[in-house]
């Protein structure tokens, strides 16, 4: 097609102007997100997007899909990370408080069927290690010791005895067959560093949900507070 210089300039200008407007709109969106109201550590539009991802994650989640298990030869060094809620020694008369029911002793937990699995612990920072964990299924404890109707609730909340560290779990993840209330690591009783006397070992979630030194378990239809979700991280943080 023949065109005059004028025509070429006009069409060029028009295209660049459209491009400029599109670029400004894109930059505006970026600027709006960055300068939005802070919602627990991240701009609100990003928080909304994470909540939408969480709905997707829960819809995707299947209890029949298990985290990969490994061989004993794959077991590596456990890494200690995070001391929140672990001040001092655990109480010698420690009992697990289950809201609305009687406290549960470690012996009662050990009387539940013992489950062991070798799974990969994945920190949200990006590192991981493979370890053998032993304990009772969260679901077994809930069925045996939680008040009636508790396991029908949408959420479970766990916190350390001092209430400094707390996590919330959707029901499907809490009741997942690999979700353990662990009292053994690599065949030995848990050390304080790793959350003695009882910790959560939930291989379908990032490490931040694997609460150490559990003090109390609650069941509710409203979403429990979550320490890292209050500090900018995704609430679901599941795999």
């Amino acid at each position: 097609m023949k065109a005059t210089d004028q025509e070429i300039s006009r069409r060029t200008r028009r295209s660049f102007l459209t491009g400029g407007i599109a670029a400004a709109a894109g930059f505006g969106t970026w600027y709006w997100i960055r300068n939005s109201f802070d919602d627990n550590g991240i701009p609100r539009p990003l928080r909304r997007a994470e909540e939408a991802d969480d709905v997707f994650s829960r819809a995707l989640f299947s209890e029949t899909r298990l985290a990969k298990t490994f061989d004993a030869a794959d077991i590596g060094e456990a890494r200690v990370n995070g001391k929140i809620g672990l001040d001092g020694e655990p109480n010698s008369d420690w009992k697990l408080i289950v809201e609305g029911a009687s406290p549960v002793s470690l012996d009662q937990i050990k009387a539940l069927p013992k489950v062991e699995h070798i799974t990969q612990f994945k920190c949200i920072e990006g590192w991981n290690y493979i370890m053998k964990w032993g304990g009772a299924r969260f679901s077994d404890l809930a069925r045996a010791h939680a008040p009636s109707g508790a396991i029908e609730k949408r959420w479970a909340g766990l916190e350390t005895p001092d209430g400094e560290y707390y996590v919330g779990l959707d029901r499907a993840s809490a009741m997942h067959p690999q979700t353990l209330l662990a009292y053994e690591m690599n065949g030995l009783p848990l050390t304080n560093d790793h959350g003695a006397p009882l910790r959560l070992m939930i291989p379908v979630k990032y490490g931040i949900k694997n609460l150490k030194r559990i003090g109390k378990i609650t069941f509710s239809d409203s979403r429990p507070r979550d320490y890292w979700a209050e500090n900018g991280y995704d609430y679901d943080s599941g795999f």
Binding site: G41, I42, P43, L46, E50, D53, E125, N231, G232, D234
Partner: peptide
């Protein structure tokens, strides 16, 4: 800025 990075990445 890990949590911020994840939030941007997952949107």
């Amino acid at each position: 800025r890990l949590s911020e990075g994840m939030a941007w990445h997952f949107l």
